[in-house]
Design a protein around this nucleic acid. Structure first.
Length: 275
DNA sequence: GCCAGCCTGTTG
DNA sequence: CAACAGGCTGGC
């Protein structure tokens, strides 16, 4: 579900409520949701800072312990002011984990159960695999468009959209922002990367951070059910040019947006403008 | 590289 | 009822 702009919006909304809080309990209501291979304890540790890398949210705790969160498709983090409010727990079948704090609580809800929490020491860690192999962040400086072009050009056979979705090449884009970036760059998502000029790849690389900044400014994209850590929807859905707009007019030429499958994902584009 | 699989809900 | 969903992994 959430991509970089949504995770960043969640981070910014939660930070003022979480930083400085002491953890009273970390409960997992389904066994697989929390991975804690070293048997660390979160209890008694304070939350010192929140950061983000790609689509991972990190809660930095005392004693160099981190709680990593990946929301995958349907995960939500929700802050509640009342630490004692367990009234919804019994009635909420999608509550998978809860962090009870000295003031308030953080609930992890996830319909499809793909999301994960990881309690791990800082520094070198063998997993999660996706985190270990994360490429440079698509938004946070230093962002190097030239270096991204070089990484893209290393895979001439691969379709450009497939590469934008690879988190080891660039961390943060998902299906929505990959389609939107390719629309802005006027590139067909199915183009093999090797057929695209260096100049064009550079143009694509350069427009990604401003696209994400715009989305963050709108609180991300609520296409279906995304809400941020305080329950607010994202307004960037009003700015989407192609994602979810199949059959509607292209904002640039007015011809209908088409939907196909590229890299195994639903892909929205304008056949006329994107080549 | 591709694709099934992980889950459950919603949509056509 | 089948297809699809904002992600990622592992097996071929």
């Amino acid at each position: 579900m959430p991509e970089l702009p949504e995770v960043e919006t969640i981070r910014r909304g939660l930070a003022p409520h979480l930083v400085g809080r002491e953890i009273r309990a970390l409960e997992a209501f389904t066994p697989e949701v929390l991975e804690n291979p070293l048997g660390l304890s979160a209890t008694g540790r304070r939350i010192r800072a929140l950061s983000r890398q790609g689509k991972y949210l990190l809660l930095h705790l005392d004693d160099a312990v981190d709680l990593l969160v990946h929301l995958r498709m349907t995960g939500k983090l929700l802050w509640l002011a009342d630490a004692d409010d367990t009234s919804r727990a019994e009635r909420d079948p999608f509550l998978r984990a809860r962090l009870t704090l000295d003031q308030g609580q953080l609930r992890f809800e996830d319909v499809r159960r793909f999301g994960r929490l990881y309690l791990l020491p800082q520094g070198e860690r063998p997993f999660p695999k996706g985190y270990r192999e994360l490429g440079p962040d698509a938004f946070e400086p230093p962002y190097d468009p030239g270096a991204l072009v070089a990484r893209l050009a290393a895979h001439p056979e691969a379709r450009i959209k497939a590469l934008l979705l690879r988190q080891d090449i660039l961390a943060g884009l998902g299906n929505i922002y990959a389609d939107e970036a390719l629309f802005r760059a006027r590139l067909n998502p199915a183009r093999p990367c090797g057929t695209i000029s260096r100049r064009k790849l550079f143009e694509l690389a350069r427009l990604i951070p401003p696209l994400l900044a715009e989305a963050i400014g709108q609180g991300g994209t609520s296409f279906r059910d995304y809400v941020d850590g305080l329950g607010q929807k994202g307004r960037f859905v009003l700015t989407l040019a192609v994602y979810g707009r199949q059959g509607l007019p292209c904002p640039r030429c007015g011809r209908p947006i088409e939907k196909t499958v590229v890299a195994g994902r639903g892909t929205h584009y304008c056949r006329h403008c994107q080549r």
